[in-house]
Every structure is written in C-alpha cells, then in structure tokens.
Design a protein around this nucleic acid. Structure first.
Length: 484
DNA sequence: ATGTTC
C-alpha cells in the first residue's frame, strides 16, 4: 500500500499495471486514459483500487479502469472486473451502492427554436413533475404486493400500470426486467424504503436534462437512433434505485464482511468483501441485486412518464409517446453473467460494471433489432455546464473490456473540494450565462456537482472511441437542468 | 449514491 504503482504504456490510450506490482494480483490491470486524464487519475489513487480488484478470487482477463475512473468503495468508480462463474466471487462493493444507476434518453420532435420561448415554463413543469431531494418520496406510493411486482418485473410492471408503452421496453437494457430477481432475499428495511420512492430523482449527480443535439459525428448511426437533426431537443434522465438499492447494497456488504473468514478470503481491502458465486449467499446477493436493478428500471420508466406529461402540458398537446420516443436506457452499476473468449476459450463470467456502461457492438443479439446494424446505444452524461454524448458499442469492447466502456465524465474534485471551489449562487449565475436554466431542490448540494468538479467528458469519450470500445455518434448540450 | 453519523 502506498507504493508507487508501476505503469507500462501500451499505447496512446492504454496503460498496464503489471502483476509484479503485488504478489496477490491474479491478473494485470489495464487503465484507459490519455496523458492528461492519467495525471488526474494518479491524483486520487484509484489505480491502487484497480490493483486491489485484481486480487479477487477467480478474476479473469484484466482488472479494468475506464478513463472516468475515480476513487470508490472498494472498487473504483469506472471499474470493470469479470470473475469465473464456477470458481469466482461476486463483490457487492463492485456494483456499488446505487444498484442500476443508469441513463435514459428520449428524443422529441421539437427543435431548439420551438422551445426557446417556453424554457422557464418547461423547467417549472419538469421540476413539479419529478420528485427530487434526499429522502424524497416518489410519484407513486406502493403497497407490498406492488413492490413485489416492481422487484420482479421492473419497467414491465410500470408499462402495465400505464407509464409508457411496450415500445419503451424494447429499447431498455434487459427490456427493463433482469431475470433471477429474488424478493425473499431483500430485507424488510429495503422494501419499506422502496415502497415510498418509486418515481423519484433523488439527489447527488442524478438529474433530468433537456438537451440539444449539438454535433453529429456519425450520420448513419445518428439516423438509426433517431437523433439525426442538429438542434433537435432530447431529454436525458440519470437516476438509479434510490434508498432501495442502497439498502440492498448495505445489507449484502455487511453480510459479505461477516463471511470473509469463513470462506478463507484474506483480501487486501475489507471493502472488497465478496461471496462465492456458487454459494447460497452469493446467489442471494445476485437475486437481491436484480430486485434493485428492476426497481431502478421501473423508477426511470415513471420519471420518463413525468417528462412526457410535462412536455405535453407546456406545449398544449396529448402526451403521445410516439412524439417523444425513447432512444435507449442503459445501466452503469450492475453485475451480469455473460460469456467471453478468454485465452482462446469461451468462459462464463460475472461482469462487475461499477460506473461502467455496457457497450455491445453491432450484430450482438442483446442489441435491439432496430439498432442491431449500428450497435448498442451508450449514453454518457457529462457535467451540467458542458455536454453529454451518445455513442454505440464497438467490437473492441468484446475483445478488451467484457463488453464495457466508460459511464460519464468522472469526478475530478471531491464533494468537499467542489464546494470550496464554487458557491451555489455563483454557479447558477455562471450556468444561466451559458444558457442553461436550472431548477434545483437543494442549492446547498449544487456546488458538489459543478462542472469544475468533473473531468471533461469530451476527453473521456475520445479515449473510449480511440481505444475501439465505443464509437461517437452525437454530442448534446444542456438547456434545462432539474436536480435534487 | 444515501432517511448524507444505523
């Protein structure tokens, strides 16, 4: 610990942490970064966590760090690790506290100029329709039977209840319903928290943004995604499983910690606490995690419904989903059982994506048919002052990164450092000057999410693009930000 | 991220 980590340069976008760094490493580490991003990464010690993850029992391939990597609980945020399905483990900290934190993007048939005169009304209406704030209740209070349905059926339940349409499910990762959910593996406490919070944004870096297509990198892919018009208005929702997923994570992190000795795991960091995939506890975690994932998909489905209603009300028309078609919903905090070729042999593995987005290439059967020729949409939110991106998965992700790429800009300053760097009043002024209208639940927390607190998302996506993990399609600029 | 110190 604390030793200088030896880094070997592979090429302009890749660095290797060799196994010789630490006897306990079962595989080397690989980090994706250009020179400038690497400097920032070295500042917060996240590479130590990449090396730590490489010591997990049954890890295969490489312990991976994406260009938006930063310090997290046990695993770095922006980390990917695959463990052998037979001999490996699942580490709840390797998924993170916000199970199925993810991003959803809706297109609209409106252009920037058509909404210019209605920005304040639209911002107010979105803010009114999307409950937010720490500990905030959601749009829909659930009874226990409904909560069970949400845990098992996710967004599919929401559609049956009238929030959106079946077409939305076709463009949601896992169709908004991850198999293997086990409500009986979820604590009472988690269920009670979840029953109050469905259809809420929460706080932190979660948001709903109205954005404009600002630059098109790939006409053909943009056309396939329905984002081919410069100036087109779109809406991004970034949110997860709220207090429900948080409680599931906390419960299983505690359980895993209590079992480390029994399983003979002597890990370099107790936050890596893990459970054998073939154990009852490991399977219970995956079943509970699926409940968390499904809750998050239902949550984003309700939030999207609120967005469609807000637009309909402001623009005086019916809330027809076909006027605001959903483009895609992708998760960036989850573990998935998938198969990859490792050392020339197909292997079933548990892919931990923590602050990492699935990025399946064209032709992959899990990519919705309408996008199959271009690849799975990859949504990368940036910061609220600059821009966000839409990419599609590229073949390199299957060869290098277990079908994964980055998830966002990545934090550059800690929350406390960010608050020191900028005041919220000053920040709101700065955003308004840039043409970004903001509605925020807690002004106090806003500075933590200031653009200065984040790396430049453009730099981050350039690295995954150049490394062949995903391909740039469009860039989006924020117009309205609604936050917790 | 988070009923932000169960």
């Amino acid at each position: 610990m604390g030793d200088k980590i030896p880094l070997e340069r592979i090429d302009d976008n890749r660095w290797r942490i060799p196994r010789r760094y630490n006897d306990a490493m079962n595989v080397p580490g690989i980090v994706y970064a250009d020179n400038e991003l690497l400097e920032m990464i070295l500042n917060d010690n996240a590479l130590q966590q990449v090396a730590n993850v490489a010591t997990l029992p049954g890890i295969v391939g490489h312990s991976l760090g994406m260009p938006d990597i930063h310090w997290g609980y046990g695993f770095p945020v922006g980390g990917v690790a695959a463990t052998d399905a037979e001999s490996g483990v699942v580490s709840p900290g390797g998924i993170g506290f916000d199970i199925n934190c993810g991003v959803r993007l809706l297109a609209t048939d409106l252009l920037r100029d058509q909404i210019k005169g209605s920005v304040d009304r639209l911002a107010d209406e979105l803010y009114r329709n999307l409950p937010s704030g720490v500990g905030g209740d959601g749009m829909r209070l659930l009874n226990e039977a409904e909560m069970r349905e949400v845990m098992v059926r996710g967004a599919e339940w929401a559609v049956d209840e009238g929030y959106g349409t079946a077409a939305d499910l076709e463009v949601t990762e896992e169709n908004g319903r991850l198999a293997g959910a086990r409500p009986e593996a979820v604590s009472r406490q988690a269920i009670l928290r979840g029953m109050k919070q469905l259809g809420s944004l929460g706080s932190g870096n979660h948001f709903c943004e109205v954005q404009v297509v600002d630059h098109i990198y790939d006409e053909k892919a943009a056309e396939a995604l329905g984002l081919a018009q410069k100036g087109q208005v779109v809406v991004t929702i970034h949110c997860g499983s709220r207090g429900f997923g948080h409680q599931v994570a906390e419960d299983y992190i505690k359980l895993a910690e209590s079992k480390q000795q029994q399983y003979g795991f002597n890990l370099v960091d107790r936050q890596l606490a893990c459970l054998p995939l073939q154990s009852e506890e490991g399977q219970a975690y995956l079943g509970a995690m699926a409940c968390g994932a499904n809750f998050a998909w239902a949550n984003r489905q309700l939030l999207m419904h609120g967005v469609r209603q807000a637009f309909a009300s402001v623009f005086g028309r019916k809330a027809r989903p076909k006027d605001m078609p959903m483009v895609y919903d992708v998760c960036h905090n989850i573990a998935k059982m998938e198969e990859y070729k490792i050392d020339g042999e197909m292997k079933r593995v548990c892919v931990h994506r923590k602050g990492a987005t699935r990025a399946f290439p064209a032709g992959h059967p899990a990519v919705p048919e309408k996008y199959r020729a271009v690849g799975q949409p990859v949504l990368i939110p940036g910061d609220m002052g600059r821009y966000s991106f839409m990419l599609v998965g590229a073949p390199g992700s299957m060869e290098q990164s277990f079908g994964s790429c980055c998830h966002g800009a990545g934090r550059r300053l800690s929350r406390t450092a960010a608050k020191k760097a900028v005041g919220s009043k000053q920040l709101i002024e700065m955003l308004e000057n840039k043409g970004v209208t903001i509605r925020v639940h807690s002004k106090n927390l806003l500075a933590e999410e200031a653009p200065q607190a984040y790396k430049d998302a453009q730099q981050v996506v350039n690295v995954v693009h150049n490394a062949g993990l995903a391909q740039l399609v469009v860039r989006l600029k924020p117009m309205i930000v609604v936050k917790g």
